[in-house]
Design a protein around this nucleic acid. Sequence first.
DNA 1: TGGGGTTGGATAGCCATGGTATCCAATATT
DNA 2: AATATTGGATACCATGGCTATCCAACCCCA
Lengths: 218, 218
Amino acid sequence: MRISELVERTGVPLATLKFYLREGLLPAGEATSATRAEYGEAHVRRIAVIRALTETVGLSVQKAREVLQLMDRPEDDLFETLGKAIAALPPSVTPEAAEDYPRAREVLEKLGQVYDPRFAAVAQLELALAAAESAGIPLDDRRLAVYGPNIRAIAEFDVGSIPREATAAVEYAVLGTAVHEPVLIALRRLAHQDVAARRLGQGSAKAGAPTRPRPKGR
Amino acid sequence: MRISELVERTGVPLATLKFYLREGLLPAGEATSATRAEYGEAHVRRIAVIRALTETVGLSVQKAREVLQLMDRPEDDLFETLGKAIAALPPSVTPEAAEDYPRAREVLEKLGQVYDPRFAAVAQLELALAAAESAGIPLDDRRLAVYGPNIRAIAEFDVGSIPREATAAVEYAVLGTAVHEPVLIALRRLAHQDVAARRLGQGSAKAGAPTRPRPKGR
DNA sequence: TGGGGTTGGATAGCCATGGTATCCAATATT
DNA sequence: AATATTGGATACCATGGCTATCCAACCCCA
């Protein structure tokens, strides 16, 4: 198909597609002449992934490119590839070698997980813990005792659902890690509402409080 | 204390503090003269919250202001306040009244939770589900059956830990929802690594693979 | 064969965001 | 009185993510 059809299929403006091409997020179509190139279904899919990464996950174009490149040509080691992909995910932190992350270390020890300061997610955790702490809501043991196992159960499932086949695995793992994060966040926010509504007994019933089911319509 | 001391205490540059004052994120100190104002511990804390909200949670200055204002003068209804705060959290979506969110509705029905399209988090969920779907990894029933209960357990704890006192409750609830999100995300990413390492048997042991504990040092 | 409608490719512009930097005049401080 | 700080206002700037415009080469259809 031609680029104009890509525009139609994806709803992304032409100027933006050209921008993605320029930035190397989207591979060029197969040139059939100097002024014509052929695009395929792979391009349609790629554009969806780009949008998911930039709009939903919130990656910058640059970070999105890094992640896409990893998905295109994963390195030998799946862990390494996944690690690099995670490093590109927000909040984007580059772990300093020779740096120590005491809060993260403590948490991981309590969870019985390995602590390796070279891992981007460790630096990310440290940052998040420090922020929570300075905001006045540190992650105490009781909370960790709840968060840890439940998150782990989720992660177990995630890993279990990664396909065996190598190339697909990288793409699936990277995308799954990134794309399901917003889903989890939204689910938690909604669960907060629901739990709060039930516990506090539909609270101060205000003008059609958003916590009670309403008959049907809209 | 004077503003220069605030700079020292928080490590935030003077120009930036002035910027926060201008933007209404940080309340002005108590003016003791035309060229002097007195700041207190509350300001130090506030700055920490601002940084957590903008840097860690990733809120824009404008959204951060909205959230802070809600924390300062919560409205009568805690649900409404919390709902508005959540609406400011990324990915910032403004739910269109009269809009339907089919994917979110289906998920919530399966979870036995109330579906109310006026809720920002519902729109956020819809967006996240749509993104996952178009990226090729839809949220299927099996995954939902794992995510749902585990996230709910987390939410139960979260709500249970909100203090009874009204004004503190809002601040705690809003901050807790926001600042623990990055923690949960980081924990999941790390759990992925850990689970993957154990399952796939420390994988292809590469140069000091980040999945094996190393003796001790650094 | 010719002419309108696409293309690719390149370049320039635009707007919002999140700061920085500079000035200034009014004080404090010593 | 001399020097250093402030508050307050204004101007400036870099980055990011597009968006717009041009152009010339084409294709396709008549």
